Computed example of a mutant assay.
Amino acid sequence: MDTVDRQILDQLTVNARTSLTDIARTISLSVPAVKRRIGRLERDGVIRGYTTIVAEPGARKLHAVVELFCAGQIQREDITRVFADRPEVLVAFTAAGDSDVVMLVQTDDTDHLESLLMDLRRHPLVSQTRSRVMLNTLMGRLTL
């Protein structure tokens, strides 16, 4: 992957529906060249998909970062079972540092978040949680 590929990815990350013509014009490349590069990035697994983010009426609106601290040595599979069946968990990462797992969660409100945290704390592998409620979205680029 080179600088031109990164420029293409930057354009698609901001808006996955950006036209090939607009990308080509922005990075001074031909439309067929942009199309070939995007195809290669898809085949190589760099671009794993495209998504639509829908804000539905009544959709969950409260986002929080939740850190899990685990008791003793844990296996990834074991700790994943703590939250795998929770639809509130949008993404979870193992982490270096104080916490063992960092999750981005989405709940209906603070009562829902509190209930989720209480459930997580009841699990024998979880010794502690720490959370931060997100106030406003400044940018929405989540790349996994």
Rank of each mutant, 00 (worst) to 15 (best):
D98Y: 10
I8N: 07
R17V: 07
D44A: 15
T26C: 05
P57S: 09
L125P: 09
C70Q: 01
L20P: 06
R86K: 10
R76Y: 05
G39S: 10
S127E: 15
D109V: 02
R36P: 01
D5W: 07
M103R: 00
I23S: 07
A64C: 08
I23C: 10
D2Y: 09
D2Q: 06
F83R: 04
V126E: 01
R48P: 00
Q11I: 03
L142C: 03
P57C: 01
L142F: 07
E42V: 06
P124R: 00
F83H: 07
G45M: 04
P57E: 13
D78V: 01
Q106F: 00
C70F: 00
Q106K: 06
A24T: 02
H112E: 15
P57T: 00
G45Q: 08
E114W: 13
V133K: 11
V101S: 06
G39C: 02
D119N: 11
E114Q: 15
M134W: 05
T3I: 11
S131V: 12
T18C: 03
L120M: 08
R25E: 12
A71L: 13
E56Q: 09
T110N: 14
C70S: 11
T94A: 06
D78R: 08
T18N: 04
R25A: 05
G72M: 08
V91I: 13
A64V: 05
D108E: 11
D2G: 15
L41E: 12
V101G: 07
H112C: 06
G39P: 11
Q7R: 13
T52M: 07
Q73P: 14
A71H: 11
F69R: 09
Q7M: 10
K61R: 14
V89H: 03
D98M: 07
R48I: 14
S115R: 12
R121N: 13
R132N: 10
V91C: 02
T3Q: 14
L20C: 00
M1G: 07
D108W: 03
L135P: 04
T94M: 05
V65S: 04
L113W: 00
D85N: 01
V54C: 01
D78F: 05
S131T: 13
L125I: 09
Q7C: 06
R43H: 14
Q75P: 02
R141N: 10
L120S: 05
L113T: 05
L113N: 12
R60P: 12
G39W: 06
P32A: 05
H63P: 02
I74Y: 15
V14H: 09
V91P: 03
N136R: 12
R17P: 00
P124F: 01
L120R: 02
R17C: 09
